[in-house]
Amino acid sequence: MIEISHVNKWYSPTFQVLTDCTTSVTKGEVVVVCGPSGSGKSTLIKCVNALEPFQSGDISVDGTKVNDPKTNLPKLRSRVGMVFQHFELFPHLKIIDNLCLAQQKVLGRSSDQAVAKGMQLLERVGLKEQAQKFPAQLSGGQQQRVAIARALAMDPIVMLFDEPTSALDPEMVSEVLDVMVDLAHEGMTMMVVTHEMGFARKVANRVIFMDRGEIVEDAPKEDFFGQPRSDRAQKFLSKILSH
């Protein structure tokens, strides 16, 4: 589904953010990307739907090359759902309109179709009653659930999550993770940048550990948590699992 091969990205010759990153996500797979801050994990996931450009290497999603200038990026992105750390709901639009905008403007659905789909997804994330409110009237956890629903409204073939719970108060993390776990169990292909190791243990198929722009470890979940091969991954795990 997602093929990342030998991706390099730099801002200047001396400032390399991604170094020779190669990995893949197959259909139905849930891959968790973790690593210390500044390790390039967010950058890597943003390269997948070309929100960040990269200088060399190839990324393809469902057979379409992301870095090909001929690729219709809006069309490709409409099939790749993305959830951001800071939700990024559109504050001037009501919740339901947040869900409908791209359905109507990108997929060309009618207003009725879009609203029906939107309400169905709001119900699924438990926020049907909030449809007529504005984003600022919702809690962080609710906003992130809306953001997930907004991405799902496009019927994506894969979902990217960029630290979806990092900006949340602790008591709201689980309501978002619950939605994500359900999604994973339904067979959605997911690439998730997160520090939530509980989530990784529960639903991930594979864990990728990144440090200083490199993929240091790319292993099945059992291997990663059982016996990480690299020192850096061991150190990282011991730091975040000690509490």
């Binding site: 929100l51 069309k75 993305m82 800071h86 559109f90 504050p91 001037h92 905008l101 907004r150």
Partner: peptide, 29 residues
């Protein structure tokens, strides 16, 4: 914030649509 156009792009909106439906209404307000 830069996240707004990024979110709009991620949903498949083109540059013109992003400006018209997401960025300019907020900037204007």
């Amino acid at each position: 914030s830069r996240g707004q156009p990024a979110a709009a792009n991620a949903l498949g909106l083109t540059y013109a649509q992003t400006m018209r439906y997401v960025v300019l209404p907020q900037a204007f307000r």
